[in-house]
């Protein structure tokens, strides 16, 4: 399950869904896997405002991933090259160096390091195996081979 998806789901029990503690679900014993995917800058720009940033930060922290900034990046952070060198120095790999910029349209759409980092966290980082635990009722949902299972045992329905 992608971390982006985890940001859009909650406990499946009706009695939990209105409770703040049922979101986000908390990963436990999670085995992560990177599933590479083409970066689509427009898609990221469009999706980002819908992400519950604090929930994403919580989940990343619980998974032991690098800490995300306190405040959600804005559109400009995604489509322009980072203006402050070293800001994302941890994950800099030298790929972001310009290759001429022959087409201005393309240059505008060029993903920044921030965009690449977010793409990696939201869309490529997946929970391959483990559990997702509801903070309200404590129920554990299993994740196996990347697929989360939200079926409830009949006594919980």
């Amino acid at each position: 399950m992608k971390l982006l998806t985890l940001n859009f789901v909650t406990c499946a029990r009706k009695s939990c869904k209105t409770l703040p503690a049922a979101f986000p679900l908390h990963p436990r014993d999670a085995e992560l896997e990177i599933v590479e995917m083409e970066l689509n800058p427009k898609f990221l720009v469009n999706i980002l405002p819908r992400v519950e940033w604090q929930a994403l930060r919580t989940v990343c922290q619980e998974l032991g991933l690098p800490t995300l900034p306190d405040i959600m990046p804005v559109q400009q952070d995604l489509l322009q090259p980072p203006s402050l060198p070293g800001r994302e120095s941890e994950s800099q790999e030298g790929e972001a160096e310009g290759e001429g910029g022959s087409e201005e349209e393309d240059a505008l759409q060029k993903p920044s390091q921030t965009a690449q980092d977010l793409h990696r966290v939201l869309l490529e980082t997946t929970i391959a195996n483990g559990k997702l635990v509801c903070g309200a009722c404590g129920h554990e949902y299993a994740v196996k081979e990347g697929i989360a299972n939200f079926l409830l045992p009949s006594h919980m329905v």
């Binding site: 859009f8 909650t10 499946a12 869904k17 689509n40 990347g146 079926l151």
Partner: peptide, 22 residues
């Protein structure tokens, strides 16, 4: 689940694990 960029999970239509009003 093989269709990117989307996501797929197992759930019952009567007990959907989705955020309300979202």
């Amino acid at each position: 689940g093989q269709h990117q960029p989307h996501s797929a999970l197992v759930a019952d239509a009567l007990d959907l694990p989705y955020r309300l009003s979202f």
